[in-house]
Amino acid sequence: MSLLEVNGLTKAFGGVRAVSEVGFTVEAGEILALIGPNGAGKSTCFNMLNGQLRPDSGSIKLGGVSTIGLKPRRVWRMGVGRTFQITATFGSMTVRENVQMALLSHRGRLKNLWVRAREQYVAEADALLARVGMREQAERPCSVLAYGDLKRLELAVALANAPKLLLMDEPTAGMAPKERIELMALTADIVKSDSIGVLFTEHDMDVVFRHASRMIVLNRGQLIAGGVPAEVRANPEVQRIYLGSRH
């Protein structure tokens, strides 16, 4: 049984099919890249996987259990972490507090009206921050972080509930080439050590070809190619609609 099994996933907006009959699998310990032109349906696909959108039809199974109809917070509880294309963090909190929130939520202790939130799970939060190289910045307000650091913070937050699957929407957008490679190398390490599956979208083909175990290509809502990077790269259709002359 695969970690994630998607079959016949379909979603239409106002009669236009944004995602049509898409199916794929993600195995534990694997990094699957989802690429395609802007507007191909990548974000719609992602939003269905984590529960933000409800598919019109099709099935999504995580470890054999259907997640259709579940809200994002339920999907998260089933072990799906997510990072966003435009980072989403709590700007009025420190870096550590951001991670503490995920830990408090994971342990079901957020309803507490009395204890001091900032004193909870400090060591665990710092351990997670250390994993992504953010330990030194734990006390800084999240609002002053550099963009690359925000991305790493998001990764730490996503790891707080020991997820089985990570969904990363353009994880390296807006970063310098070296930072991109570093972040994905870090992700690859975590994938290996924790045996997590990763699905990510990306426009930087250097990142994709270097780190993806397999890739799938979406165009106008439909899956048009899939396989190991070398195969996809050689596909003339993919070259025409997406890769262009340079790759």
């Binding site: 395609g36 032109p37 802007n38 957008a173 426009h203 083909m205 025409r240 890769l243 262009g244 340079r246």
Partner: peptide, 10 residues
């Protein structure tokens, strides 16, 4: 060229 498909970058 940020955040657009390689073919658009061309």
């Amino acid at each position: 060229s940020e955040g657009v498909a390689p073919v658009i970058v061309d």
